[in-house]
Design a protein around this nucleic acid. Structure first.
Lengths: 251, 251
DNA sequence: CGACGGCATACTGTCTACAGAACACAGACC
DNA sequence: GGTCTGTGTTCTGTAGACAGTATGCCGTCG
């Protein structure tokens, strides 16, 4: 009779989405698709008109997106799409990598078979994506990594990772027009298959190694040229990445 | 003339706090002081009456606290103080420890002298706390650790760490009445001094080792008995913690 | 010609009101 | 006696209005 406390009943039918959620999704896709660029202002009035919701749900949606790191709000000065500096990219990348590693260490080999299903499905969707919508394809790739992190069954870890992944998508959206078609989608799906296989085999160390070489480091160098705002840390880190890349190319 | 874009001017005079911020602070302290316990419902009407603000700023405050992990909201069902299971404690502790370690690896030795000032000040405040307000003392200890993590100059890392620290304070608030005066404040301040010294000396490895033995693991075992909701992962992890503790006691 | 000051405008912070959903209780039925 | 159903209440989701603040423009003064 599963008399839960009400907070976490496992719903069979999805709850009707609230306007706030719909507004958040719409805004998020506007940002991640590159329709809105970092630094763009987000006046509430025009957005309510554009999205067809009132200010209350819109403000709630903006608060969600702020938590996700996609927008920043200044008191009495409104919200803008989060501007990205080189230091931000350094932060996003280092933290995200670390979280992914922790997730693998905690979660592989996998405790519950069901979590692997999610990973399989995410890969299937990534493989099946045929259209040439680059934004959607990027999203699916991130969804796969999210499922990978989900293997640990660690809600907070997964949530942090998701937030950082979104910010990374924002970073890519910013540069998309310039780097269109950097790699084809089939190549990208193929690049992810080994990760799936290693996870299914429960090979923790193999997975850790594979992930270290999986990151799209070429993208990073590309991104560096399109932003400013270096910090001492980020400058050193980018230099290191560059060195590693050249080393691996030489070999 | 420092013509910033408006988003991040470094203000000399503090911006007048908004009602939302005040409400968030009030709510947070109500939760962390143990006045509200995990699972308690938070109806908007009674809270607006209690805090003297309208529903809009209150809702925004609740959204902030949800992001901090102190409360959880269910659509159309309102908010409750975040209930903590053993699995939650496992999540909070593992992730927090990992973030702290990453911060030290990235941030020590320290790049900018000014960051050390913050750490010194945090320690001074911790040492100077004489009153017997346990909640406040706990807060100051966490503030010290936050400053330690802040050495890395990694905003996102620090923010995640802060959120997890708040949740840990919630966990402690839950058990406070039972474990009152588990250790005196002077002892606690003394326990933190080596961390400060190691950070000032720029001794990264020494700091990492010290931190590994610094965590209040006895508290964890105590907490375990006051919650339910174990997962396979959390059960194994708690067992490991217990084993380590007994091992170190024996030696 | 450049800088300062005042004014108009746009935008956000907050409040109140209304509609619909979740919940609790009481009565009816098996 | 227990379970189910209907109804009333409580609470949340959303909308819209008002007030105060930030911003940009224009005219004036040095």
């Amino acid at each position: 009779m599963n008399s839960d406390k009400g907070a976490d009943v496992d719903r069979r039918i999805a709850a009707p989405p609230t306007m706030s959620v719909l507004a958040a999704e719409a805004l998020r896709s506007m940002i991640l698709s590159g329709e809105l660029l970092p630094g763009d202002r987000l006046p509430e009035n025009s957005l309510t008109a554009q999205l067809g919701v009132s200010r209350s749900p819109l403000r709630e949606a903006m608060s969600v997106l702020e938590q996700e790191g996609l927008i920043v709000q200044a008191p009495r000065r409104g919200a803008i799409v989060a501007p990205l500096t080189a230091h931000d990219i350094y932060e996003i990348y280092t933290l995200r990598e670390q979280l992914e590693e922790l997730a693998i260490r905690l979660g592989v080999p996998v405790a519950e078979e069901a979590r692997l299903d999610r990973l399989r499905e995410a890969f299937a969707r990534l493989e099946a994506a045929t259209g040439d919508d680059q934004t959607e394809h990027t999203r699916l790739a991130f969804e796969f990594h999210l499922a990978l992190v989900g293997l640990a069954g660690h809600r907070r870890l997964e949530e942090s990772f998701r937030s950082l992944s979104l910010q990374m998508q924002l970073c890519m959206a910013m540069n998309r027009r310039a780097r269109a078609g950097l790699e084809t989608m089939k190549e990208d799906a193929a690049r992810h298959r080994p990760l799936l296989d290693l996870a299914l085999a429960g090979d923790r160390d193999g997975l850790l190694v594979a992930l270290r070489n999986h990151g799209q480091r070429t993208f990073l160098l590309y991104a560096e040229e399109h932003v400013d705002g270096h910090s001492p840390e980020s400058r050193a880190w980018f230099a290191e990445v560059r060195a590693q890349l050249e080393g691996s190319e030489a070999s």
